[in-house]
Each structure stands twice: as structure tokens, then as C-alpha cells.
Design a protein around this nucleic acid. Structure first.
Lengths: 208, 208
DNA sequence: GGCGCTTTCTGGTATATACCAAATTAATTT
DNA sequence: AAATTAATTTGGTATATACCAGAAAGCGCC
């Protein structure tokens, strides 16, 4: 490509890196560069299973469980889940793919006391579905944070990104019908593949 | 910096560019590199004025009007605002800064027929406020889309970004209490400065 | 047809130069 | 003291090399 256009190879690379930074193309190490696939839509206002929703939308998702285990809440987690620090929780990380392309990597935390033997379930499906069918708990409300940030090294590896690139982080706390938080999740999306939608409705009165 | 660490200048530059891509530092052309300021939070579930909300949050905002005029709806705009193509609309672009730092650039469209002489108002304030006080129209619901994308050249100039960088685009359609859309806006945020929050509540029943 | 080896292709990283342009700073002049 | 001018600093861009490592393709062999 460089000699075809009479520029040096470094210049050509930088041009491609620019396209990469804009999300138009992506690169697979030592395999080649390819144009990016379509975005995956995620309606964050819709608290029903993202997986089921995506599939209804015509996007088939493959879920790979990267790790799963038990841990204790640190300060941040304790605050998010409204429990005291040191509470046992199940922690599991999953990689979501669509059509062979990594879309996002997610780490979720659920309270171990409330959902015993949670990790015995097959995690290659919607968490929402597991909690509904096995524990009779459905999501009722959720708080979501979205921001763009640089990827960590391990995230970059799973997502097939260069370590210097950025993605979109989506954090959500899911609460039951009593308003009690029971699940906290943090997703890191490949930025060029993410598209979030939300519907806002003005609360007639928002006391306190 | 290069000679201090015994690497070539190009290598040092690439390292700084990586930090820049991750949003940790930013560069001002021929002035220097600086660490990035704090993020600006935006609660997209809150349909009351973003400006007022930010100020209540301790963030003072400076608004610069880049351009303002009248235009006609193209296919996309007509669909978003649920009018037929060619409808006259006011179009204005504003740059939002905080503490001297450009945060995002926004282009909004309001129906000219419904809000006559809209452009005579001082646009360096919340649109919501203008519409409420002058036209007795308040936002009631809104549809929001968030995605990461590469910046265009003119956007990059206003935001002080390199043309190859990415930002976060936020589109929103604002509807009145009758569910009729009256305003469409598209914001492009510096990715490292944006933080969006939302609150999702499961609709008991979502007919059709 | 499969297996293993070698070559080629492709991307990644680091370096050394050269030159440009704007912003800042220092020096000089008025 | 203010204005003008020159030097310096800083970032940006383009180029030419060199070398490394993994993936893919070609090839000979069993």
C-alpha cells in the first residue's frame, strides 16, 4: 500500500492507525487489517436480558466464561451493592462475541449469601434469566454509568485491541422490586461496536 | 523527555500519543501537553436542563454560539422530529466549555413553525429554559443514543483534538407531554471528559 | 490426502533525520 | 515602558531503516 501510493511504510501505517483510532478498521496482529463490523445496539433502559434482547434484534451472541470464583467486596463494590465491606460475592468474567468478533468483556458480581450455588449454573446465558428462574429475583431498576476510557492490558488481549486504545465502559447496578441492589456489572465495549440507547421520562415529582 | 530516558524522540512521542488516546493527557498544538481535567457528569435520565443540572453539580459552563440559522429538515431530521422532509427548522451549534476546557460541541434543531423567533433568544443558556419560559413547552420524554466515533475535522478544531481521535456522540430527541418531538440535538463530547449516567426502570407492561 | 519444514507476508517496535509551523520567550529597539 | 524583532521551545509530519515475531502459504515428503 505504501509503495502503491508512493509514501513510506511508516506513513501508511500511521494513516491506518488513524482509521483504527476512529473505529473504521481494526487490525489482527500479523494477520491483516479489516473493516469493522456493524455496531451492536444495547437499550440500557430495557432491564430485561441484554442477551435475549440482542437475539430478538437479530444479533446472535456467543458467551465465553473467562473466569468465575468467589471474592469479597472491596470498598467500591460494597458501596455499589449497599453491603458492608468484606461481604462474600461471586465474581465472574465473560467475553461476549458476535459473529466471531469480540464485542465486550464483562465482570459481574452477585451477592453470594443471597444466591447460593450461583456459580453452579451455566454462565453462558443471561444472568437475568438465571436469577429469575433459579432465585425468583427479577431486575426492577438499575443505575448505569457510561464513559470512555483506555483499555487495560488484559482487556485489550481479550478484545483484540492494542493496549493504547480506548473503549466504552458501562457499569450497572441492578436492583430488585424492593430497590435493593443485588448485582453489579462492569462491561468494557469495543468503542466502535457499541451503540447505547436510552429513554428518559421526566418524573412528575422526584421527592427528596 | 526523549534524551532523559535515552529513547528517540519519535518513541517518546508515540508513548505520549498513547496516553493521549487513553484520555489521560491532551495536547495543545505547539503549546505543550497537559494532564486531562476531571470528567463532566451528565445524567441523561434527567430531562431538566443539563446546564442548570451541571451548575447545581458545581460545574460552571461557558456556552459559545458557533453558528445559528434556519434550514430545512433532511430525511434523517424529518424522521427524528416526525415531520415531513423540507420542514423549516432552526439549526444552531454551540460549544460548551468548563474551566476553559472544551467539553462538547452541540448542534440542535427546533421546529421553526412551532417556535417562531427562537433565534432571537440568547442561546448562551439552556434551550430547555428558553422553551419553557417563552413557549410554554417542557420536555417530558426523550430518546437518547450514545456511541463512540471519530471526530470530523471541524469538530476536532473546536474541541482541540487531533483529527484522528474519537469522541462520544450523544443524540437526543426531546418530546413534549403529548409525546410529540420538538427538538433534536447531537452532541460530540471529548471522550475522556464525558461520564453519562442513567436510571432504568422496568415498565410493568410495555404494550406494542 | 496428511504432515512437517521453509519461505513469504504482515504487522509491531524502535531509531535516526529532516523540515515545517506556531507559540513562547528573550533580546533589542523605539 | 511599549513595541518590534529574533531566538528558542514545542508539537506535527514525513521518510528511511533495521529487526522481530507470528500467521499464512507453498512445498516436498511419507
Amino acid at each position: 500500500m505504501a509503495e502503491k501510493h508512493g509514501v513510506s511504510r511508516m506513513t501508511a501505517r500511521r494513516a491506518l492507525e488513524a482509521l483504527e483510532a476512529q473505529g473504521l478498521v481494526y487490525s489482527e496482529d500479523r494477520r491483516g487489517r479489516f473493516v469493522s463490523p456493524q455496531r451492536v445496539k444495547y437499550d440500557v433502559s430495557n432491564m430485561v436480558s441484554f442477551v435475549a434482547n440482542a437475539q430478538a434484534n437479530g444479533t446472535e451472541l456467543e458467551i465465553e466464561v473467562i473466569s468465575a470464583g468467589i471474592a469479597q467486596t472491596d470498598a467500591t463494590l460494597a458501596r455499589q451493592l449497599a453491603v458492608k465491606q468484606g461481604e462474600p460475592i461471586f465474581e465472574y468474567t465473560r467475553l461476549f462475541r458476535s459473529g466471531g468478533h469480540a464485542i465486550f468483556i464483562e465482570t459481574e458480581y452477585v451477592l453470594a449469601a443471597r444466591f447460593p450455588k450461583f456459580l453452579d449454573c451455566d454462565l453462558r446465558q443471561s444472568t437475568t434469566r438465571i436469577l429469575e428462574s433459579h432465585y425468583n429475583t427479577s431486575p426492577c431498576s438499575g443505575d448505569i454509568v457510561i464513559r470512555m476510557r483506555g483499555v487495560h492490558e488484559d482487556e485489550a488481549r481479550y478484545l483484540g485491541l492494542a493496549a493504547s486504545q480506548s473503549g466504552i465502559e458501562l457499569e450497572q447496578v441492578i436492583c430488585d422490586d424492593a430497590g435493593v441492589p443485588f448485582c453489579f456489572g462492569r462491561q468494557l465495549w469495543r468503542g466502535e461496536l457499541a451503540e447505547f440507547t436510552a429513554r428518559a421520562i421526566v418524573n412528575s415529582q422526584d421527592s427528596e
